[in-house]
Design a protein around this nucleic acid. Structure first.
Lengths: 343, 343
DNA sequence: TACAACGATGATAGCGCTATCATGATAGCG
DNA sequence: CGCTATCATGATAGCGCTATCATCGTTGTA
């Protein structure tokens, strides 16, 4: 026999059967096998059953990498958040995930650690995976990142806050939230109100809330002092923050914390110190985490519909991916003042 | 000119420049451009600079899908957890993410919602993405899933608990943890101890803790009643659970909750009800969440090194991926009894 | 009966990258 | 000076799948 097979030194990715082998086993062409899986309507029911049976028998696992390359799209959705330590982002991610997953999309999760350069790198990587769309927390990006996003024709969804967005936008007005809480404190009769946040240059949404807060106080002819801490949000940081606040502003009557973790830590620490809340000191937060509503006194805070924000963002992206006309590019999910006994 | 280009109706994935175009711009072959990016050591420094400059100029973003198909491996690590609502898994994910990311791997996150069939589907999908390794929470899998995992030659890491693992295993002994807490309660003089969990068939690690708990009580000649709730873990569920527990077991002296969310919810609710903790009722949890150490009385609980568990798991997987010999397939990360004033 | 319309299937040709082997140039050695 | 070792680069051939166009019956309609 002179018809020897060639050296056959070619690599094979793995021992996994390929679509070609499935097709051979079912007596059809590879493209029919592909269609049996991906567009069942186009294939005769009997043929399709034969193909699926062969897949089952051979233990076929579709190679999604090859499929994505050939079709130039993956069913990935890039999701970029600044932190996983914050329950807020987790809930948004949950809303996104459950909605996208139900439509057969897989989330690619990236964590920037509040580093805007890191966001750029992550977006490059995710674009390299031909993701179908991009969801990112916030409207602030590095110039390079902005350029990249502007030149890419995929749906881009910016969540958490509202403003001049690149494409789609679902969020809430943080300045309004800060204003709302400040006004509540004013209504309660407080005149010496301190804002306590942490790393406000990074956590710029907290900074926006502070601006709203300051605006409300200045409208009432009051000063709006603020104190900046090191650690973003934790009960420990809240407790430490309370001590720093009392040290620097001994005559303060109310503290508006940048988030519930800080506020809760402070409230619990105030109890340990024997400070009566709200009579000696009022405490307010932001987020509406469950813990705030379980402690006594309940924490006055602002609740945002985070899971819903994720679901809505995903729904809008899906609508766009389905080719539907988008009526509104921007959705305000709003917020709600929860008045507890801490103010 | 008869040398017209053919109809050229071929698709192109996008307007993105390809490696070929970069190579042309830099006056090298595509393979050299590829090497300039992926194995810099193999390319002359000057050539490399020229290629990188061209990439920069053209705004080249590597197509990772194509790269993965050609090389039959992606830099994905599949990570599968049963829930995102539970802070425990988030912390493990954080440990995994920071470690893998530092080595250039991207996590593919899957959420099973405590559904073992869903785990199988996710693993199939992730294998289809040629992930480099698989990290999954827990040792329980569906038979089909087990077969799939046994026949795949990638590193498989099972985290959270210890036991008969498929490959690598990092976790802690939940039965021992349950035993430890039960013994602590016995030492404190409690004789009527109730275990309260939720959906123990799904949350089988809590079930394992219950077994350890029961063992300790039975050794002391005591009964080990238990109460099962609907909702897995939340402050609300803990509060409701406390009421149910008091209703069903009015003479109970101590409650061992399956997790800190339940225990904290119960503890705070007990305060609202005016029940003195620990004198009238002792409360214990499991996890060592920060909130437990901030409330008064502090919650007695068991802390597990979750972030470290993620880091260690990632490190072991990376060691395997680097082709190093693995000395131990199993690592016990241990746990620590935190004695608060709630017992 | 001729022709369009449709349904089911297949042949062909890549998607953009990298594994593999080959080549040419330079350096090192006895 | 010839030989091997090493370095830098390139040519070739896919990775496993799907987009695109083509084909071939079958059916309905005038």
């Amino acid at each position: 026999m002179s018809n020897e097979s060639p050296p056959q030194r070619r690599r094979r990715g793995s021992e996994q059967p390929t679509l070609r082998e499935v097709a051979d086993a079912a007596g059809v062409s590879p493209i029919t096998a592909s269609r049996a899986l991906n567009s069942p309507g186009q294939v005769n029911a009997r043929t399709r059953a034969r193909v699926l049976e062969a897949m089952e028998r051979l233990g076929y696992v579709p190679n999604l990498v090859a499929g994505s390359l050939a079709s130039a799209r993956s069913r990935f959705i890039a999701v970029i958040v600044p932190s996983l330590a914050n329950a807020v982002f987790i809930e948004v991610i949950q809303g996104l995930q459950e909605t996208f997953e139900a439509h057969g999309y897989q989330i690619l999760l990236g964590n920037t650690d509040y580093d805007i350069e890191r966001e750029y790198q992550l977006i490059r990587t995710f674009l390299g995976w031909s993701c179908s769309a991009l969801v990112t927390a916030g409207l602030r990006h590095s110039p390079a990142c902005r350029t990249l996003l502007e030149h890419c024709d995929k749906p881009i969804m910016e969540v958490m806050e509202l403003g001049a967005a690149l494409d789609l936008n679902v969020g809430l007005d943080h300045a309004a939230a800060g204003r709302c809480m400040a006004r509540h404190l004013l209504e309660r009769g407080h005149r010496r109100v301190l804002f306590v946040g942490a790393r406000l240059a990074s956590d710029y949404r907290a900074e926006m809330r502070y601006r709203g807060h300051r605006e409300a106080l200045e409208q009432a002819g009051l000063e709006a002092p603020r104190l900046e801490l090191e650690h973003l949000g934790s009960l420990d940081a809240g407790a430490a923050g309370l001590e720093r606040a009392l040290e620097r502003h001994p005559d303060i009557g109310a503290i508006h914390f940048a988030n519930d973790d800080l506020a809760t830590g402070a409230l619990l620490h105030a109890q340990r110190l024997g400070i009566r809340v709200p009579h000696e000191l009022a405490i307010a937060g932001f987020n509406g985490l469950p813990i705030g509503q379980h402690i006594t006194p309940r924490l006055t805070t602002i609740r945002s519909p985070r899971r819903h924000m994720g679901q809505l963002a995903a729904t809008e992206v899906l609508r766009r991916l389905a080719g539907k006309r988008v009526q509104r590019r921007q959705h305000d999910v709003g917020f709600e003042l929860l008045v507890g006994e801490s103010t």
